[in-house]
Nucleic acid binder design. Sequence first.
RNA 1: GCCGACAAACGGAAUUCU
Length: 430
Amino acid sequence: VYTYSVLMSAVARSGRWEETLVLLDMMRREGVAPDHFAFGAAVNACAKGGQWERAVALLDQMRSEGLSPNVVCFNTAADACARAGQWERALSLLAEMAAVGLRPNVTTFSSAVAACGNAGQWQRALGLLEQMEEEGVSPNEFTYSAAVSACGKAGQWRPALNILRRMRATDCPPNVTTYTAAIDACGKAGKWQLAEGLLTEMREKGVSPNVITFNSAISALGNGGQWQKALDLLEEMPWMGVQPNIYSYTAAVTACGDNNRWAKAVGVHEKMRSQGIRGDEVSFTAAIDACAQGGAWHMALSLLDEMRAEGIPPTVRSFSTAISACGKGLQWARAVALLREMEGFGVSPNEVSFNAAIDACGRAGQWRAALSLLDEMSAAGVPRGTITYNAVIAACGKGKQWGRAVALLHEMLAGQAKPGEPAAPAPSAD
RNA sequence: GCCGACAAACGGAAUUCU
């Protein structure tokens, strides 16, 4: 039993849940009854592998084999729900624990808070903080950080900062992760000055920022329009003993790109590579996107070539971004050509790729080309989305093809009869 | 007590509007 569960925990870390289930079966076949550790490892593998239903089902499986799930098993299943944003399931596991006489601990609550946060339920996350204290369980850094992150994801920077304030009054003061989550929360809300202030504050309090903290701060500055400050911080972080990684550079590339500084973005990306950090598909795509936003379609295409020359296979996102770059530069023929070429590189265009190409045609007044792409899309088995219709309707509008635009609108509405789907944004009616 | 299972923070793409 011991040997098996050690083996399973190793497999679990890599998220290979299928293998842990096979191992469970092997144990049974050899007449070895899986214990809490073995099941715990299997539940963990399901959690890491994104299989929250299986994780929860394993708890029932345990019972049918005569084992009552313990707190760790519940916690691990709650973590699976948290990762999937299944807050209702996470909360029902909490309730279930109480029903079978188990006391949820701080880990249980932390996962439940994270589950709410990942589902956008920030008020519920805060409610859980209160609830756990009422039940005599003190939140720790994990819980608080999850709560700050929950607020941040929902754009709630004030409650996020309130949690930090509250922590200062406990014997669990904010640590580097909490500060990082708070910086990220401020950044997402465009509050770059607050993010900057938190970075200063933490250092004053003797909490050393790590690379993730700096990356969040760079993004916060970029998101607040402060691309120059973002670049400055990238330069300064080594002085504070933290070497930038590829995430840091990519955040800086995005900061420049989102603020209409495509040449700076490309420069930062090059600098990264001159520092011995190889670009990857994400960093290149960020640089291509910076060019797209700046209308620098030619540079976007060069970057796409460059990444291939470096042996970094462009992804569907890379291609879609480059198509968009061509479109914004009114290079519709190049956009369409790229759409057709990508298949040759082993990358199938998806809905986004087609949308970008259709938009490229529309911008250039090529409504016929846009319509034929719509047909091609169906022929390729790629479903049309709301955005597809918006783009193609806009293309017809630009080409003064009112009848076609209206027909497409009706087609879109007719095909959208699925209840529960969000309604299409109303196209402007001129 | 530890030596077998559990938890938190950061980066990339499309349409319109902001």
